[in-house]
Design a protein around this nucleic acid. Structure first.
Length: 115
DNA sequence: GTTATGACTGCGA
DNA sequence: TTCGCAGCCATAA
């Protein structure tokens, strides 16, 4: 069943569901997979995803302020910003412009497409 | 088995 | 407004 997968797998699934040109937060993902408060683990899972899994749109995951706190893990401090810009998302001072409008809630999507 | 860590979040000063 | 502290969960050592 879908609950046989581990925490990391759930994170990957949710992150992969993030539409292009949209963003979400670590806490939102943690909550969507039934582990509120594990936001820090979400970031850790994504970090591991670079070598364990294929491409994960981790650049679409930011903190609750829309700030690119994880950009330092992309191998280059500008990589995350470039990826977001290439999707039509504007970044100013390491922050997502109009974050509230671009925010994509995993919970809302999972209601329609359960993992 | 315990301990430490972390790409977070919320509240208080 | 910015800054600091505490809570939260899963994984690694």
């Amino acid at each position: 069943m879908s609950e046989d997968i581990g925490f990391f797998e759930k994170v990957y699934q949710v992150v992969r569901l993030i539409p292009r040109g949209r963003v979400t937060s670590y806490g939102a993902i943690a909550r969507s997979i039934g582990s509120p408060g594990a936001g820090r683990m979400v970031g850790w899972a994504l970090n591991k995803s670079f070598s364990d899994k294929g491409f994960i749109p981790a650049h679409r995951v930011v903190n609750r302020n829309g700030r690119l706190t994880g950009k330092i893990h992309f191998g280059g401090k500008e990589i995350m910003r470039e990826l977001l810009i290439s999707e039509g998302i504007r970044i100013v001072d390491d922050q997502v412009v109009d974050f509230s409008s671009l925010f994509w809630d995993p919970l809302k999507n999972i209601e329609e497409f359960p993992i």
